[in-house]
Simulated scan of single mutants.
Amino acid sequence: MGRLEGKVAIVTGGAMGQGEGIVRAYVAEGARVVLADVAEEQGQALADELGDAAHFARLDVSDGAAWARVVADAEERFGPVSVLANNAGILRFGTVEEMPVEEVELLWRVNQLGCWLGMQSVVATMKANGGGSIINASSTEGLGGMANTVAYGATKFAIRGMTKGASHELGRFGIRVNSVHPGMIDTPMTRVHGGDLAMEYGASKVPLRRVGHPEDVAPLYVFLGSDESSYINGAEIAIDGGVTATHAFGG
């Protein structure tokens, strides 16, 4: 306990699923957390449950002005932001031939632009206070391709690339930037695309023969947010039960 004592964190997409797991782990380890999301009811309920160490802020991650407000609110309420978990994201399936442009643009705005704006918004406060840790949520689809996820995968590859560049750009200020690449994680975002059947199919493709859960992912975010990972910068870390260890994500 206390691995994040003294840290102030912003967790996007923090109201449910993987983000909720990160928020709970951060508070348990001593951080003060702004959980940012568009899901106001769920986000406020989680903040109320966790008490004074957590605060809910409504955030559309594709809105730069909203980002500025959330960062200013975090600084006023808790102090300088030292950890950003850029976790918010959406999943849409569709072929190159048939996917509507509107869905492609939505993926770009939420997943890619949202990540960019998050990094941009915390640089000043982290530089002024000696550094920090930015953790960007990519995916196994940011490491390899899969049919029907071309647009989604493009955003996750972009996050991986932005992470690499930002790690070089910001490292001299003590700001570490790393990407996390989850595989099939049992969350509301993934369950909406097939429920139990999707989970069963996903598990059949994993060497461990199970899908992951938010509790499997959150400890990695704790580690990367803590001083224990002080020499890890620009890394891409898969947390996928071994999926990307196999050729072409096969069995």
Rank of each mutant, 00 (worst) to 15 (best):
V34P: 03
G153M: 08
G30I: 06
T140I: 15
S204K: 06
R210N: 07
I185K: 00
M199A: 14
M189R: 02
L106K: 15
A47T: 04
L208E: 05
G242Y: 04
T12Q: 07
P188G: 07
E141T: 11
M119Q: 07
L197R: 13
E105V: 13
G13K: 03
H55W: 12
V104G: 01
W67R: 05
Q42E: 14
P182N: 09
V104R: 05
A238Y: 02
A198T: 03
A66T: 07
H193K: 03
R209I: 06
E40F: 03
E236L: 12
D216R: 01
Q120V: 09
V38A: 09
M1E: 13
R3N: 05
R24V: 01
R172L: 06
R160K: 15
W116S: 09
G17W: 00
H193L: 12
D196V: 11
V101H: 11
E20M: 13
K7Q: 15
N111I: 04
E169I: 04
N87C: 14
G89Q: 03
P214Y: 07
V222D: 02
G17R: 00
D227K: 07
G183R: 01
L220K: 02
H193M: 11
A151M: 07
G183H: 02
F157C: 11
V243Y: 04
G118A: 11
F173Y: 15
G30N: 10
A147H: 10
V177N: 05
L50P: 03
A9N: 07
R191G: 04
L117Q: 08
Q44V: 14
E40K: 12
G145K: 03
G30L: 08
I185N: 01
L208I: 13
T125Q: 06
G118Y: 04
H193T: 01
V27S: 13
S121N: 06
L46E: 05
Q42W: 07
V34M: 06
V104T: 09
S167A: 15
T155N: 11
E29W: 00
D60K: 07
H181L: 08
K156N: 08
R210K: 13
T190S: 14
E75R: 12
V243Q: 10
G21R: 03
P207A: 12
R191L: 11
P219I: 11
Y26L: 09
L170C: 03
G2L: 15
D216V: 10
L224D: 00
E236I: 05
A85D: 14
N129P: 04
K156Y: 05
E41H: 11
A128C: 02
M189D: 09
P100F: 12
E29A: 10
L107A: 07
R58K: 15
G250Q: 14
H193C: 06
E49A: 15
L117A: 10
G89K: 00
D63M: 11
A137P: 00
E40T: 14
T12V: 09
